[in-house]
Structure formats: C-alpha cells, structure tokens
C-alpha cells in the first residue's frame, strides 16, 4: 500500500509536468482552432534560450525575461509569416504546417544555441523531502512538488487572466466564434499574436521545469507527444481538462509501468519494460470509445 501510494503520488506529480505542456496546446487551440504540434519544439527552444542566456553570464531572472522576449517574438513571427497566410485552409493543413514549424524550430534552435545537452539550475534540488521520508517512508521529490506548485500558479494566473482582463475576454470571444468576435470589433490578428505569445510563455515555464529536471536536450521536443493523450482525455478546449488529463496520464502510466510487466511476464515470459512508451496512447484510445470529446471538451455537432 505504501509503495502503491508512492508510485501514485510520483505519477501524479509527473503528470503535472505533462499538463504544463498540454496547457500550451489548449490555449492555442481554444483561441485559433490550430492544433499546434510545434509546442514541444517551442518548449525546447525556450529551455535552450534560458540556458544559453545564463551561459553568457545573465542571472536567472534576466535570462527568463530574455527568453520570454525571444518566445514572444517567435510567436508573433509564426502568426505573421505562417498562420496568417493559411487563413481559411482546413484544420488538417494548419496542423501539418505546425509539424513543419516543429521541424523548423528543431533545426533552428541547435544552430542558434548549440545542441549539446546542458543542465539548467533553478536553485531547487531534486531530492526526497526529509520529513515525508522519515514519517511515512515515501520518496517524494522536492522538485516535483515545486513543479506542481508552479503549474497551479500558472493555471490560476491564466484563469484569472481569461476571466477578468479585457484581453482575456476578447480571447474567449474569439475562441467562441471568430466571425462574431470580428463583427463586434475585436482585432483578430492582434489576438492571435497575443495567444502565440502566451503559448510561448507557457512553453517557457514548461521548458524550464522539464529542462531543470531532465537537462536541456533534444528529447524535450518529445514532451509534445506525451501531451497528446493528455489532450484526448482532458478535451482540446479545456484548461482544467489539461490538468486533470495530465494527472490521469501521469498516475496511470507510472502504475502500469510498475504493475503490468510482472503480470505480462507470468503470461508470456520475457522482459516487458518500457510500457510507459505506449500506455498513454492506448489508454487515450479506450477513452475515446467512451467520451470522444474528452472529459471537459465541448460536444461536437456536425452541420451539413
């Protein structure tokens, strides 16, 4: 039971990390209907720019600000040079364009900042919390808890921003209906630039968390792939959905990784590690059977 709880909690905490990436997807999808496959590459770019600013001698806060500026500029450039030219194309075309964008960033970022894996030091140590280790004999990482806190803060800030600011209201209006928003005088293209800026910011936060945990390396781009089943479970359009989906995926994949291989080994023999690699996708697949629109997604109605 002890061990189960430990796996569960650690899974939930790593799920928070997935949720951080999934949030970026949700924001862009809500506001512009674009499924942004490049979010993972943006996470990589953000983490790389923080690290290289620090290597040049900038303190952490300055590096974060510089990286934020880079990500915002990048987001605006994307909107201006790619997405604006693809207005009125089917969503699949936009999706494939973001795959191209992902490749573009994956090539550009190492050329700009170098490709060797580097450590990112945020001043938080990845070590078990002594109090929990002593009293309940469970290994819970301090770093993971901080990450969870950051995610909670980020979601609260975003929720407040969407709910109470002028721009936030405009963003929600655009998400509801592009044409209606346009007709009441909301500048659509500014809004999209802002959304891409915010997506860049979320990518920055996710990139710093992931980079501090696993090192800043190319593998950061794969975080996008892990975020996809999270989106399926949570729904593409829901911020709380991204968090809940992340928790479900994180917990279930860690539990599956620990408890499934022995079962399969007794059935077939052999070594069955690496279930983590596909389990979230298959789980998402079964989830689609029950609720195709996700836990918090909007029901899709087809009109002919």
């Amino acid at each position: 039971m002890q061990f189960f709880l430990e796996v569960l909690i650690n899974g939930l905490l790593s799920g928070v990390m997935y949720a951080l990436v999934a949030l970026g997807f949700v924001l862009v999808y809500k506001a512009s209907g674009v499924f942004n496959f490049a979010q993972g590459a943006m996470v990589y770019l953000a983490a790389l720019s923080v690290v290289s600013c620090m290597e040049k001698g900038a303190p952490l806060w300055l590096a974060i600000i510089l990286a934020f500026i880079i990500m915002t500029l990048f987001g605006i450039a994307t909107e201006k040079f790619v997405l604006r030219k693809l207005v009125n194309q089917p969503p699949i075309t936009l999706f494939m364009a973001t795959i191209g964008l992902a490749f573009f960033i994956e090539g550009l970022a190492p050329i700009m900042f170098g490709s060797e894996p580097r450590a990112l030091d945020l001043g938080i140590v990845d070590e078990p919390i002594a109090a929990i280790l002593d009293s309940w004999d469970m290994v819970i990482s301090k770093f993971d808890l901080v990450a969870a806190g950051v995610a909670a803060l980020l979601v609260t800030t975003l929720a407040l921003f969407f709910q109470y600011t002028r721009i936030g209201r405009a963003l929600r209006a655009v998400a509801d209906d592009h044409q209606a928003a346009l007709s009441i005088g909301i500048p659509l293209q500014h809004i999209w630039a802002i959304v891409w800026g915010i997506a860049g910011f979320v990518a920055l936060v996710a990139g710093m968390m992931w980079g501090a945990r696993n090192g800043v390396q190319f593998a950061l781009t794969f975080t996008a792939l892990k975020a996809l089943p999270v989106l399926i479970i949570g729904g593409f359009t829901s911020v709380p959905g991204a968090i809940v989906g992340g928790l479900i995926i994180g917990a279930s994949e860690k539990l599956a990784e620990i408890y499934l291989p022995p079962v399969m080994q007794s059935m077939f023999g052999g070594n069955f590690g690496g279930i983590e690699g596909w389990f979230p996708y298959v789980l998402a697949l079964f989830f689609l059977l029950v609720r195709p629109e996700g836990l918090f997604g909007e029901k899709h109605i087809d009109r002919v």
Binding site: L86, M96, A97, G100, L101, F103, F104, G107, L108, I111
Partner: peptide
C-alpha cells in the same frame, strides 16, 4: 531539418 520544416510550410502556403 530546418530546410525540411521551412519547405513544408512553404509548400502548404
């Protein structure tokens, strides 16, 4: 990789 990505976007546009 960069040229690949750029070409994809270029063709789609």
């Amino acid at each position: 990789v960069l040229i690949f990505g750029a070409l994809i976007m270029f063709f789609l546009i």
